[in-house]
Structures are given as structure tokens and as C-alpha cells.
Design a protein around this nucleic acid. Structure first.
Lengths: 246, 246
DNA sequence: CGCAGCGTTGAGTAACCTCAATTAATGTGG
DNA sequence: CCACATTAATTGAGGTTACTCAACGCTGCG
């Protein structure tokens, strides 16, 4: 890759050797920070914290320390109420910002757990607030992220409140598809890192119902499933599954 | 009210004659702004915009102009998808901040409509962003509000994904009860400004199911209903309705 | 008064859940 | 690396919850 020409100036050189292509820095790119601001930002970050499969990133009730952006791996976020009911509120993949719900109370309201070996970059929330004030573009970008999370939650309510089982499953697959595509991965062939139980909990359905919905979509040849590997055979017809209301 | 003593200094005098006890200023109080900051803030506000019953505060797709705090009245916020499915995402009452989901895209993602004659105070979002940068306490308070909205949406997902019909209705009533109490109104005797249809849509249930749940809770003497007026007879037993799982 | 919209109630049905049996995948210790 | 144990996923049968459709009562308004 390297041509050996050592006179080559700095731009492409990674700023943090331990974290090339740092996910938190990548998260900031839409904010169009200057080189100085990027450095200022990156110096505050805690790069590449590793989490093993089943390890917690944070737990309900813990004091808010950091916000995280996922570097690699898949995480699962859930809330648990007084009676022990659990509800998965989201699955996060590389590039996603995690921990936003904690800024209201200063304590995490969710458990976030690794669905596979993962790494994240974190920033102390206090540092982040300070940078937000100094860098208006960053503040704006952060507000956009918070707003997106609210908008995402609203679509989720729509799904839970107004869709039948098969529509929810189709909409779940299409959502993953889009997010994989946005990250340069295949939109039609991917691996589900979570169990059917997790999917069911997330969609407000029982595991068996999810399984049956998969089987039915597969028998209609809209998708193909081999365990946790999914192929979307026809995005259009999968979308129609959701569209075709009366 | 005025004693006539013109030497009397300013503190208790309302800063905006057209909007005494302005709801947006009230919303800011937890941020502990200085008198100067309050004035700076209030000067940017658009006070007391009136909305009649059934009038829109904003519509899906409109450019984000202002954030609003409700002065009086009740509003209903809903999203509508491509297929025309509607989902009510919240009911707002005096003191609530409205419009947060729009900051992601710069366009409102929701319709917000008055359930009764209402008044709101608004601030241009650009002005608000500027003030946020100048006043760290305000920024922090705004972040808290965004975080609270996210946390609220998550509990809503829990309700939609993990509770049966009667639990949802009980939890809906208890939520209203708490919010009325927080505003100094009765926690046990209040008026429902929305239709059964609206409640059903919000809770992911049919109107008939809501009505049956009300009737059942009433026959168990946990609540009493006379049309849109509700009395919670036993808060504890209503909470148990939600608690008693397995 | 009569209409229109909202709310309640009943009967029948469809969607999803529960329980159970079976198979597939995953992990573990020898 | 295999045998075994464990967990995950599929599929079937039957039950329950909430939906659908319909009739009727209530309330408010022209």
C-alpha cells in the first residue's frame, strides 16, 4: 500500500496509532470539524475499549460516565422494569452512538451488552459537553443524533402499535438491510447476531412467532434463512409485505 | 396587585405583560438562569400563540421553525407512514416541550394537533441553539429534556411490547395521574381530553378494547369513569394491575 | 327533534401465545 | 477431535387475547 515516498505529507496518517479510523472520529465527520478540532476531540477519547461476547458496556442505574461509538461488533440495549419485564429497545452496530438516554438523569437507564466480541470508543460526557460548547458544529451534530434517536423510537412505536407480526419481522429485516448498506455491507445477505428470542422481545412477539414469520416469508420466497444467515431475495416484495394494508 | 410604591425594584413584576408566568420561561427554571439570561431568553420568545380545538401546531414535513412549550391546553402528536398508518406518539400538557424530533432533519416528523383550545410559547430553533451555546446551564437543561424524551419513548416501547391490554390502560392512567400531580392538579380525579379512539391508537389497541378495559377496571372498583372524567379510586391497586405478573 | 359522533356492549373470529416434541447448532471437557 | 451437554430454532396442536363487525345508548348541536 505504502509507496515508500517518505516526503508524503500528513493527511492520511492515522492520528491515533492504537485506533486507526477511530469510530468516534468517524462519527464526527458530518460535523466537518477542522483538523485542530479533530485532534482536540480525539485527545479526549478513550480508544478501543474491548468487550467480549456477553459483557456489559453499561448497566441500568450506573452513573453516566461516557458516551460510546461502536467500532466493531453488535450490541443489544434493553430496559427492565420493577417487575422484571425486559424490553430490548435497540440493536447497535458499528458507527452507532450509545448511551444517549443517560443524559436525562445522569444514570444509564438501559443495559447494553455485547452480542459478540466488540470494541467501542468512549468519551467522558463532561468532556463532550465542553467540546459541544466550543464547537457549534459538533453541538449541532449531537442534537441531530439525539433527534434521530427520538425519530427512530417513534417509528418503533409505530411498528409495535400498528403492525402485525409478519409486518414487524419484515420491517425489522429491511431496517437491518438499510443499516448494513449504509455501512458498505451487503443489503441482501447478512448475519443476524441476535437470537430469535431477542428479535421476539424487540418486536413485542414470542420467539415462535418470529420463527414462523421467517418460515412463511421464506416459503413465499421473499427471503431465505439458514440459521442466523438471512438473504433478502426481493426487497420490493418484502416492502410490499408492509405496504399492503387493505 | 401593585402597591403604588414606584421605588419598588423589579423582581416580582412580570417581564412580558402579554405572557405572565410564561411557560417557556417556567420550563427554563431548572436551569437556574440569571435575571439577565431570563430577559435575554424571553426577548427571543414568541409568546402565547393560540391554537383552537383541532388546529395544527405543526405538520409532518414542514420545516422546523420553532420549539414550543405548552401554556394551556392539551395536544396530541402522531406520525403517519407511507401507507397511511397513524400512530400517536404522545399527549402533551402544559409545561411540555414539543418539536424535539424535528432537530434531526430540520423538518417536523410529526403532526401536532390541539385537543382543545390551547396556547403555546415558541422559540425559533436557531435562536435557541445560539442561547444554548451562550448559556451552558440551558444547554444542559435542553440535553436533559432530549434525554427524558428518549427515556419516555423507551418506557412506551416497554408498554407496547410487553404489556397486555389492561396493563397498558392502567399504566396510561397512572402516567396521566403523575403528570397532573406534578402540575399541582389532582392525581386521582381528572378529565381525559382525548377520545377512546386516540387512547386506543396510542396504546396499540382498538377503541373497544380500551372501553372494555375501563369497564373492567371500574367493575373491580379501581377506578370510576363518567364519560371522559376519570377517578382513580385506588392508586395502589391500579399499580398492582401492572405489577402482578406470573 | 333528529342527526352525527362518541362510547359501550355482545358474539364470533383471527392472530398470536402457550406448551410440548423434535431437530439443529453451539460449546465443553476428555 | 469427538462425544456429550446445552442452548437455540422449528414445527404442531390447542387455548387465549384482542380484533372485527354490529347493534344500541348517550351526548351535544344545529
Amino acid at each position: 500500500m505504502n509507496t515508500g515516498r517518505s516526503i508524503d505529507p500528513s493527511p492520511p496518517a492515522p492520528l491515533w496509532n492504537d485506533c486507526p479510523n477511530c469510530s468516534f472520529i468517524a462519527w464526527c465527520t458530518p460535523a466537518n470539524l477542522t483538523a485542530h478540532q479533530v485532534r482536540q476531540f480525539g485527545d479526549r477519547l478513550e480508544h478501543r475499549r474491548l468487550r467480549k461476547h456477553h459483557e456489559y458496556l453499561h448497566r441500568i442505574g450506573a452513573a453516566l460516565i461516557s458516551l460510546y461509538v461502536i467500532n466493531s461488533g453488535f450490541l443489544r440495549t434493553s430496559i427492565t422494569d420493577d417487575e422484571g419485564r425486559e424490553q430490548i429497545t435497540g440493536f447497535s452496530m458499528p458507527g452507532d452512538l450509545v448511551g444517549m438516554e443517560a443524559i436525562a438523569t445522569g444514570r444509564y437507564q438501559c443495559d447494553t451488552i455485547a452480542l459478540e466480541d466488540s470494541s467501542v470508543c468512549g468519551i467522558a460526557f463532561a468532556d463532550f459537553q465542553k467540546l459541544n460548547r466550543d464547537i457549534p458544529a459538533l453541538q449541532h451534530h449531537f442534537h441531530r443524533a439525539l433527534g434521530s434517536e427520538i425519530a427512530r423510537d417513534h417509528s418503533m412505536m409505530m411498528m409495535l402499535g400498528a403492525m402485525c407480526a409478519e409486518e414487524r419481522v419484515a420491517s425489522f429485516l429491511l431496517n437491518l438491510s438499510q443499516r448494513f448498506a449504509a455501512r458498505g455491507c451487503s443489503a441482501t445477505l447478512f448475519h443476524l447476531p441476535m437470537t430469535r428470542q431477542d428479535i421476539g422481545n424487540y418486536l413485542g412477539l414470542e420467539m415462535e412467532t418470529v420463527s414462523r414469520a421467517f418460515s412463511h416469508l421464506a416459503s413465499s420466497r421473499l427471503i431465505a434463512i439458514h440459521g442466523k444467515d438471512v438473504e433478502i431475495i426481493s426487497v420490493e416484495r418484502l416492502q410490499q409485505t408492509i405496504r399492503n394494508r387493505e
